[in-house]
Amino acid sequence: MNGQHPDEPHREGLAQRLNWLRAGVLGANDGIVSTAAVVVGVAGATAQVAPVLLAGTAALVGGAISMALGEYVSVASQRDSEHALIEKEKRELATEPELELQELVGLYEAQGLSTATATQVAHELTAHDALRAHLTAELHIDPDDVVSPWHAAFASAAAFTIGALLPMATIIFLPHPMRIVATFVAVLVALAITGYVAAWLGGANRLRAVVRTVVGGALALAATYAVGVLFGTTIG
């Protein structure tokens, strides 16, 4: 036992879990808003289910693939940068170990340790794992916890799909007079939840995040519905 509480935020794998959760929450939010906007817009133009289903399915598939690709490229770039920094630190430790040790001492002194304590800590950590000590103190990188682009891509695509299924279900399975109103309500409630979770993960103001997310979603739905009604009236 190392005395570390299992729920503390510095446990191993934190970057992976937060990356997965962040991608999942954002993916769900995008899936809800973008798909709901499409199906509500089409439903505003026609009472038939088939066009709504076709448009919603296209939005779901295209959006999920787009989200997955975007997350993969973004996180892969971050991962490549972290690997490059790790390799650079390895080279510096191999060619200039004494200079790197003094740099580590200076970092600990800057955190408030005395010179004697900083020197002792630097020597002990270097003897145990020099690379990890430098990556943690200088770059705030855990070499065993580099983010995975595949995890982020999968989480984003899966969450987008799950989020998209909510407006798809309400707009397709409910009867015509109430399906648009029900979709509005279901989508705004879901957006309030995703906004709250996103703020909680990021440590931001939760009420502000919920209001911002719900208002943005309501405006998107209202705009696309108005467009659908306008085109439906024009075509009719």
Score class of each variant (00 low, 15 high):
122 A>R: 00
76 A>D: 15
95 T>Q: 12
157 A>S: 10
145 D>L: 04
80 D>L: 00
110 A>P: 10
80 D>H: 05
137 A>E: 10
145 D>V: 02
152 A>E: 06
141 I>E: 05
166 L>Y: 07
135 L>V: 04
128 H>R: 12
153 A>S: 07
129 D>V: 12
146 V>S: 00
102 Q>G: 11
160 F>H: 10
133 A>Y: 00
94 A>D: 13
116 A>Y: 10
115 T>R: 15
165 L>K: 06
141 I>R: 12
79 R>K: 10
178 M>I: 14
163 G>H: 02
150 W>L: 14
106 G>C: 08
153 A>V: 09
105 V>K: 01
149 P>C: 01
136 T>K: 11
116 A>E: 12
104 L>R: 00
169 A>L: 15
129 D>E: 10
143 P>L: 02
178 M>V: 14
104 L>N: 03
167 P>R: 00
147 V>D: 06
123 H>Q: 13
166 L>A: 07
98 E>Q: 14
106 G>H: 09
152 A>I: 04
112 G>V: 05
181 V>Y: 14
161 T>L: 02
175 P>G: 00
168 M>L: 15
101 L>E: 14
100 E>Y: 07
150 W>D: 12
163 G>C: 01
83 H>P: 08
181 V>L: 15
99 L>I: 15
165 L>P: 05
180 I>F: 01
120 Q>N: 15
83 H>V: 14
140 H>D: 11
163 G>M: 01
127 A>F: 11
154 F>H: 10
130 A>Q: 03
90 K>T: 06
165 L>Q: 03
